[in-house]
């Protein structure tokens, strides 16, 4: 599914200084896994997730998605692959404020979809029903709670029937009760849809939701399968 081979990522801070966010990481994620990556803030978790999705270019090493080197592709090919195979859930509120809930959910289909036009709206409604927001189609993000917004983001991430869900600290802005609800949703999706999930979190208590846990520190994997 996803294969990172000796990946490094350095960010340039100035002319002569840089910081290594990820150092020599090799990681293989198989289909139907629910991998939870834990670590303190600044350990390189988010960067690793971004590398896996092709959202940032590695300084060295390879990022393979279903056997394809992401960075051997053109921007168009890479974007299409990302659109079709990866669903992304962000840490911050990522719904577009000028679009309704329904419009936000169908947004990924604007960039490419296997669905025909007539199916798009129906699928969006089904997904919103699945995340218990079926009655909020016409609402705007500002009219939803943080937990509700995150549910919409999950529905959006599933719109193009991706093979893998990448979630970057999806519950960090939520209260404990809502956090557990979201984690239950992830578990349910993983089991019912057979979707691969890779989730980054700094909350160790959530590790039990996954099938595998990986710990990162200072840009390296220090625990868990590599």
């Amino acid at each position: 599914m996803i294969n990172l081979i000796e990946v490094n990522k350095e960010y340039q801070l100035g002319k002569n200084s840089s910081v290594s966010a990820v150092r020599g990481v090799s990681l293989q994620i198989s289909p139907k896994e629910f991998v939870i990556i834990v670590g303190r803030s600044g350990s390189g978790k988010t960067t690793l997730l971004n590398l896996s999705a092709g959202l940032t270019r590695p300084t060295s090493g390879k990022v393979m998605l279903d056997g394809t080197d992401l960075w051997s592709l053109s921007d168009r090919q890479q974007s299409f692959l990302r659109c079709q195979k990866i669903g992304f859930i962000f840490q911050f509120p990522s719904l577009l404020p000028t679009l309704t809930v329904h419009e936000n959910v169908i947004l990924p289909t604007v960039f490419g979809t296997k669905l025909i036009t007539a199916q798009v709206s129906d699928r969006a409604k089904q997904l919103l029903q699945k995340v218990s927001l079926g009655e909020k189609l016409a609402a705007y993000p500002r009219q939803l709670s943080a937990g509700q917004q995150q549910r919409v983001v999950i529905a959006r991430a599933l719109m193009n029937q991706p093979e893998v869900l990448l979630a970057d600290e999806p519950t960090s802005n939520l209260d404990e009760k809502t956090e557990l609800e979201i984690m239950e949703l992830f578990r349910d999706l993983h089991l019912s849809l057979g979707i691969t999930v890779v989730m980054v979190t700094h909350t160790r208590q959530l590790v039990s939701y996954g099938t595998r846990a990986i710990e990162m520190s200072e840009g390296r994997i220090v625990n868990g399968n590599k």
Binding site: L55, R82, F88, S94, V110, R156
Partner: peptide, 8 residues
């Protein structure tokens, strides 16, 4: 975000 969702 739009780029992450698949926009070129």
């Amino acid at each position: 975000v739009i780029r992450a969702l698949g926009a070129t």
